[in-house]
């Protein structure tokens, strides 16, 4: 991957400039802040209503064959993974698409020495910064509510960055395929389905056999399993498989997005 980057002649200064533009936009007015802050609340509200609220009725659920955990402890890491996903996706789909198609931001940027791959890189890093703000605060809430041990919470932080990276890259790739706003309905429906059925609110082991296979193949399931394993200190080799899945997703998404951007913006 390092050699690929060298071959693409990525300049850190120019990637930094692309990120700097977004920092500038954040400084300029309250509207972007509102968007930013609101994204944090959704997973938190689900954690409180379903994790804690419904959890009081459910009691304990099996984590694996020999360990039972309170329902809120089961749901919290899943909401953490969801928060990493939606932080990265909202930046790389909605905002990215808007900048590309309507604000013509990238058109202006490409009249400078900045290359399409550098735009993709900068936007992805920015999405990660945004996602990390969400997951960092969310981890703090989890520790405060006694849903995670501080050290495991700390260990889970870089894992959420990996989740953000994978979803951010995929989101950017999807954005380059979007025809208009109507396609975003499709995307949010897909995102909601992932949110409900990725072992977030009930163990996937309870699903019918075929569906288990389908769920296994989806990225949020992989993320939830990885994050839950680390947050609950339930380590095993299986976690490396989940991590590998996300790395492949990140690289594939980024390469695809950069190629498509080149074709869209430099016809």
């Amino acid at each position: 991957m390092v050699t690929t980057l060298l071959a693409m002649r990525i300049s850190p200064v120019r990637v930094g400039a692309v990120i700097g533009r977004n920092v500038g936009a954040l400084r300029s007015g309250p509207s972007y802040w509102l968007v930013l802050v609101s994204g944090f609340f959704e997973p938190l509200l689900y954690l409180l209503s379903i994790g804690v609220g419904v959890g009081a009725l459910v009691g304990e659920v099996p984590l694996d064959a020999d360990r039972m955990v309170p329902y809120a402890v089961f749901v919290a890491p899943a909401m953490l993974a969801v928060s990493a996903m939606s932080g990265a996706l909202s930046e790389t789909t909605f905002n990215f698409f808007f900048k590309m198609k309507y604000m013509k931001t990238f058109e202006a940027v490409l009249a400078t020495p900045v290359r399409p791959m550098e735009i993709a890189f900068g936007e992805l890093v920015w999405a990660l910064v945004r996602g990390s703000l969400y997951t960092g605060v969310f981890l703090g809430v989890m520790v405060a509510l006694g849903l995670a041990a501080p050290w495991w919470a700390l260990a889970a932080f870089p894992v959420t960055i990996l989740v953000g990276l994978a979803f951010g890259a995929a989101g950017m790739a999807i954005s380059t395929l979007m025809r208009g706003w109507q396609d975003f309905d499709l995307l949010s429906t897909g995102q909601f389905a992932l949110f409900l059925f990725s072992g977030t609110f009930s163990p996937v082991a309870d699903y019918p056999g075929v569906l288990q296979v389908v769920v296994w193949a989806t990225p949020l399931y992989q993320s939830v399993e990885l994050v839950r394993g680390v947050v609950l200190g339930d380590l095993g080799w299986g976690l490396l498989v989940h991590a590998g899945y996300l790395v492949v997703m990140a690289v594939a998404g980024l390469v695809f997005a950069a190629r498509r951007l080149e074709r869209l913006l430099l016809p």
């Binding site: 120019r14 692309v18 533009r21 500038g24 300029s28 202006a108 400078t112 900045v114």
Partner: peptide, 30 residues
């Protein structure tokens, strides 16, 4: 890096102030 381009349709950055439009653009040139 050695060109100055003024496109037919303004593609200034509406998220940035007038000054930031210039400083941000300068950063793209390193």
């Amino acid at each position: 890096a050695r060109l100055g381009v003024c496109p037919q349709l303004d593609n200034l950055d509406p998220d940035l102030s007038v000054r930031e439009n210039l400083t941000t653009y300068a950063r793209y040139f390193g």
